[in-house]
């Protein structure tokens, strides 16, 4: 697992209070990991802080799974 992937998963485990095993690539924040609309916004903000990036709102809307978050951040950090 890449460094980015493990940091993303750690944030999700912390913020959503879920088990690490549930945080798989295809897991949806809202459908599988119990996040509501506010949790999702908070996750995006945590990613921005952790990785020192900006995720515009229109792009944040397309990040709904663990895998999408990791891909977006990997791309942004290139």
């Amino acid at each position: 697992m890449s460094d980015i992937a493990s940091r993303v998963k750690a944030i999700i485990v912390d913020k959503l209070g879920v088990d690490e095993n549930e945080v798989v690539s295809e897991a949806s924040f809202t459908n599988d990991l119990g996040a509501d609309s506010l949790d999702t916004v908070e996750l995006i903000m945590e990613f921005e802080k952790e990785f020192d990036i900006q995720i515009p709102d229109d792009q944040a809307e397309n990040i709904s799974t663990v895998g999408q978050a990791i891909s977006y951040i990997e791309e942004a950090k290139k």
């Binding site: 609309s37 506010l38 949790d39 916004v41 908070e42 903000m45 921005e48």
Partner: peptide, 9 residues
């Protein structure tokens, strides 16, 4: 302005 979405509620 970066505020946590839980700030107000």
């Amino acid at each position: 302005p970066k505020f946590n979405p839980f700030f107000i509620p």
